[in-house]
Design a binder for these strands. Structure first.
Length: 811
RNA sequence: GCCCCCGUGGUGGAAUUGGCAGACACGUACGCUUCAGGUGCGUAUGGCCUCACGGCUGUACAGGUUCAAGUCCUGUCGGGGGCACCA
């Protein structure tokens, strides 16, 4: 009989599912729980090759752990809400709901074709009311705690998708989903106070077993910088006395305070001044207003800095010098205090501004110290050095001066140490239909005017109403405003006619807690019971894509920390170890996309070669955290290998006695392959299997050894292993319920080893010797070699002997 | 600009953590098989020199440390990623 994967794979998939062998029980006596988490799928239509990559390796690992005695849960689910589904539905003239349901049913079929150990009864679907009622519930808990709030801010608005985006969803000024340039708008939005956790999110990341690059990306994203807040009193405001008003600046370089030649405020800060009726010339007003209408991208990409003299003055708290105040849009409104002290000698941006507007420079950090002369610069000197012309601080190092100057300012009430973060609060409102309704009610006049009220817990879920016209509107309001019957509701406080909140949540809220639901997916009373969560969480191993470094992973950490503060979960971090998988590029080396026509369809590959071959191909490509260009022919080698396994096991004869050499070979690879899978080096694990077969093929083995071979193969190629296990070896119970084979340490010891002989570090010979040779014996052997003799011209100065490995003669 | 990672045959990659570079595969070449073909089998395959034994050279480049360097250190070049007018 020939190996025909298409004939056996479906059969075993059905067998595993009906026998429920992969449905995790909550507690199994004597077994340790292990949730093998791979990111769930977005319901975009069908699985692409990247899903296969992720799920294949996750499943190999899961199967290995299960055979090693763990109680493994390998859950899967669907991230089903969100913009792409909505856009696809609009394009195809269907509804997001129908579109998503159809995709889920098709993708489920595809997921089953992988032959993975998915725990189907635990599947979650974020767009189902029994899931999103808990997303809403979590929102309410955060609201109670003050971690969800509504405020007006400058937000990122995608004019094409007609919705607000979180900072994390803006890539180079473009919408992450549709690449449309994002504009800034002042809108009142629901936000999560992720910034409350800035320090915890940075500090706790140290202890996680995550890729360093991911940790670093998060630390950079949060962008903590330590410096000082310094107060500059204002003067020269018509009709206002001195010391009545002040501007605060944030700086990391308090040591350059004596080099200040101006204070520059952002248009955002300037606007507040204009609003409180401060007198200002038309030039200042015009500049401020014009800057504020600019797109973020425009402001960033401006080649030349612009600005205007505000006509008032600030007093340097260090030396009481009077310096002008300028308004310039290179100073950002949303970072620090929105105002900076202007030190052109030691800040490149200020330097450029000073050049353009002819503002004075003053050098106070001198690279030549203690030489009296500082060089004339063609750019700002931004490094740390020693202070000059800085009063009593002259001569101090930058680091000392930062501390001393800030302390002095603090004692006078003119400043303090201050940390600033780049991270902003998470804007979670979306003005789109296909998402979780935010469970709030707004009571406005002429009704009671009670403002926003939370929906009572017992009223949850606030179901998403069916809508014929769910398209986004251009008035900045969610299409839910059109669902009149749904919209009108009684105010919980005054009983007057109020309206439901019409914004829906960012889908990243849904995916921030889905792994918790896996532990208790049917719970009707809680989002998950604490007891069950404690049995499975935090997630020991999480596999996913690098694109989530600063989005999903950060959000899930935040939600976990928030729930922990509320006493709802007992852990502070959701994922103890994280592994990023690479991206599979098309055969042309470019990112796969329909428009390029370089998409490799996993269904076609499976039809051609079988799921086992596709799985092993992914495992064999190389370390799974790297990117790969799809190679059309590499899978041929895998198919060859599986054919050879098929034929080799087909040779099984119950009367044959195993050769001792074969037993030894197997023993060696039991150790190696196990080690490789355990450390997630799946590529060398596969090569181990290939080597094993290469070495074994010329030997006879008995049933026990055939069984070992199949057990080693089982995590990688579950179908063929199962088929041979039943049909050739005549076993009655699944190979996947077997224990991982053990190896005999004693059998690993080779009595003979290869000793490499070097002369001056160059290999000249190699001899087979018995293990544990003494240095003297080795030396004799080395000197006996003809080839070695040629190179020994004089006296031997030194001998380095590494037992059982190498002898190096130095002459 | 700042921060981080990576450079090994024609290709994917391996290398017991400083000890035989190129395992295992893909591809290619030649040969064998015949079930015609894609997915059979065998041999060869970093480069240069040699009929051969063997020698030289070789892990982006240039140095250094060491008996010994793909691995450690310094610099350069190239590729990728994160942040980016962040004070």
């Amino acid at each position: 009989m020939k190996y025909k994967p298409q004939k056996i794979e479906r059969k075993w998939q059905r067998y595993w599912e009906t026998k429920k062998i992969y449905n995790a029980k909550d507690n199994l006596a004597g077994k340790k729980n292990f949730m093998m988490l791979a990111e769930f799928s977005y319901t975009s239509g069908n699985l692409h090759i990247g899903h296969w990559f992720t799920y294949s390796i996750a499943d190999i690992y899961a199967r290995y752990l299960r055979m090693n005695g763990y109680n493994v849960m390998n859950p899967t689910g669907f991230d089903a809400f969100g913009l792409p589904a909505e856009n696809a539905a609009i394009k195809r003239g269907t509804t997001p709901e129908l579109w998503t349901r159809k995709n889920i049913s098709y993708m489920s079929k595809q997921l089953k074709s992988i032959g993975a150990t998915f725990d189907w009864p635990r599947v979650v679907d974020t767009s189902k009311p029994d899931y999103y009622r808990w997303t809403q519930w979590i929102f309410l808990k955060l609201y109670e705690k003050g971690l969800a709030y509504r405020a007006s801010t400058k937000v990122n608005w995608c004019p094409k998708d007609q919705t607000v985006l979180a900072n994390e969803q803006v890539v180079n000024g473009l919408c992450e989903r549709c690449d449309t340039p994002v504009i800034q708008k002042d809108l009142t939005q629901w936000m999560f106070k992720i910034t409350d956790y800035s320090d915890a999110l940075i500090d706790d990341i140290k202890d996680l077993d995550w890729p360093e690059t991911t940790k670093l990306a998060q630390v950079n994203w949060i962008g903590r910088s330590e410096g000082a807040k310094i107060k500059f009193y204002l003067t020269g405001i018509p009709g206002q006395g001195d010391k009545k008003h002040f501007v605060e600046v944030f700086t990391t370089r308090a040591d350059t305070l004596f080099g200040v030649t101006a204070v520059v405020i952002s248009p955002e800060v300037a606007k507040k001044w204009l609003e409180v009726g401060r007198q200002a010339g038309d030039e200042v007003k015009n500049y401020t207003n014009k800057s504020l209408t600019k797109r973020e991208l425009e402001r960033q990409e401006a080649k030349e800095k612009t600005g205007v003299d505000a006509g008032i003055f600030a007093i340097n708290p260090a030396n009481n010098e009077k310096v002008p105040v300028w308004v310039a849009d290179y100073v950002l409104g949303h970072y620090g205090t929105g105002a900076v002290m202007f030190v052109p000698a030691h800040d490149q941006r200020d330097f450029e501004f000073a050049k353009k507007f002819n503002l004075p420079m003053k050098m106070v950090i001198c690279p030549n110290y203690p030489e009296p002369k500082c060089p004339v610069l063609d750019k700002a000197f931004e490094e740390d050095a020693h202070l000059v012309d800085s009063g009593k601080f002259t001569g101090l190092s930058s680091a000392e001066a930062r501390k001393k100057i800030t302390e002095e300012l603090k004692s006078k009430g003119l400043g303090d140490f201050q940390k600033t973060y780049r991270l902003h609060d998470w804007v979670l409102s979306r003005q789109r239909y296909w998402g979780v309704p935010i469970p709030m009610i707004n009571c406005r006049p002429p009704a009671g005017g009670c403002g926003y009220q939370p929906v009572a817990e017992k009223e949850l879920p606030v179901k998403l109403p069916p809508l014929k016209n769910f398209k986004p509107t251009n008035d900045g309001r969610s299409p839910l405003a059109k669902a009149i019957g749904w919209l009108k509701v009684k105010c919980p406080k005054c009983g007057g006619e109020a309206e439901r909140e019409t914004d829906t949540m960012d889908t990243f809220v849904d995916s921030s807690w889905y792994f918790m639901r896996y532990t208790d997916p049917k719970n009707k009373k809680e989002f998950a019971s604490k007891k069950k969560m404690n049995e499975w969480l935090p997630v020991p191993t999480y596999i996913g894509g690098r694109e989530h470094n600063t989005m999903h992973l950060l959000y899930a950490r935040f939600i976990t920390k928030a729930l922990n503060s509320l006493g709802l979960v007992d852990f502070k971090e959701p994922f103890t170890s994280r592994h990023n998988h690479g991206v599979i590029m098309g055969p042309d080396g470019k990112k796969m996309s329909k428009s390029r026509g370089n998409v490799v369809d996993p269904d076609i590959e499976v039809k051609k070669y079988g799921a086992d071959a596709v799985r092993i191909n992914f495992a064999f490509m190389g370390p799974f955290d790297q990117d790969y260009t799809w190679n059309n022919s590499s899978i041929n080698g895998i198919v060859r290998f599986l054919n050879r396994v098929w034929n080799y096991v087909g040779r099984y004869d119950e009367d044959v006695k195993p050769s001792p050499i074969a037993v030894k070979i197997l023993n060696k690879y039991v150790k190696e392959i196990g080690k490789d899978i355990k450390s997630m080096n799946f590529n060398t694990g596969v090569s181990g299997l290939m080597k094993l077969l290469n070495e074994l093929e010329s030997h006879e083995i008995s049933k026990k050894e055939y069984e070992t071979l199949l057990k080693l193969l089982a995590p990688f190629a579950p179908h063929i292993a199962e088929e041979l296990w039943f049909s050739v070896l005549k076993n009655k119970k699944s190979v996947h319920l077997e224990k991982w084979p053990e190896y005999d340490e004693k059998l690993l010891i080779e009595e003979k080893v290869k000793l490499v002989i070097q002369v001056n570090g160059r290999v000249r010979d190699a001899v087979e010797v018995k293990r544990g040779l003494s240095e003297n014996e080795a030396r004799k052997l080395a000197l006996a070699s003809e080839n070695v003799k040629k190179y020994i011209t004089g006296e031997i100065k030194k001998v380095i002997y590494v037992r059982d490995r190498i002898i190096n003669l130095v002459v």
